[in-house]
Amino acid sequence: MLSVLCPMHVVLCPDGLITSAGPTTQKLSRQQPVVGRPFLDVFEIKRPREITTLEGLREAAAMKLHLQLREPPHRELKGVLMEGPDEGQMIVNLSFGISVVDAVQDYKLTAADFAPTDLAIEMLYLVEAKSAAMEASRQLNRRLQGARVAAEEQALTDTLTGLRNRRGMDSILSDLIADGENFALMHMDLDYFKAVNDTMGHAAGDYVLQQVASIMLKEVRSHDTVARVGGDEFVLLLRDVEEPAVIDQIATRIIERIREPILFEGERCKVSGSAGTTLSRNYEVATADQLLGDADVALYESKHRGRGRHTFFSEELRARSEAAKIPLPRAQAPQM
């Protein structure tokens, strides 16, 4: 009867020898049968405290026991011990507890090795079902992650300011060149921006960039393009330019408005803007690199003359900058 109700039990005689064992208990020892051996030779009692004597074992009746098989792979078991019907007899019922997943593999157990009331099979079912569901979710996550990276790589927008990013600017610039449009390329960068970032924190810096972006968008016309191409660097593509004075007006207004202090959490952030512009009509054959490089020369001149101003590119400027051998770092904007 005990073998059906508790297939993982052992019965001990008064001197601690195993006199009989349930069919599942018998599978636990591959080296020699458990029946006939002292219980404490087969199992080590780890808790409630280390029990090494029969008296100690007897005192642990009705308690939750943590046991470990002395034989490899040293599986841990749970158990409970009670006095048997005969004088001095003890009965221990065992269970694998949480290690049941490994145990069924180790001992090649089947559903028949567990009592019909035992939840072990349900637990194994759940472990497998959950692993399968989890794996499906993991695959979905991996695919979504890949799609996200791809989408970011293809993005044309700067997420912080909502302006075009470097890639977005490049594609519009090459379209303008290909269509032979008459346009101005203005390169503007912020002065003292690093100081704001360093002393007031990145949140203040990000706020300044957003405010500057909104100023630029308000000052340009609807068919113009504003892009943030680096940390504090912007490129403006201004179309249909007949009169350079208009460009100068736009640049000056932007620079004036940027110069006004920007309030962030009650503190004043002070930056200014320097700009340089080149006009596409000054080139017989314009290339993006040439235009960007020349706007850079003009920007450098603005910085050189004291910042917070706007300069048009001219051949004279180029000659001067080449003569001075001023290293002109062609703005290597980090990819955003």
């Binding site: 997943v101 069924v104 593999q105 090649k108 157990l109 089947t110 099979i121 194994l124 497998e128 399968a132």
Partner: peptide, 8 residues
């Protein structure tokens, strides 16, 4: 066959 321990 169906082994409890052999996880698919």
């Amino acid at each position: 066959g169906f082994e409890l321990g052999a996880q698919a």
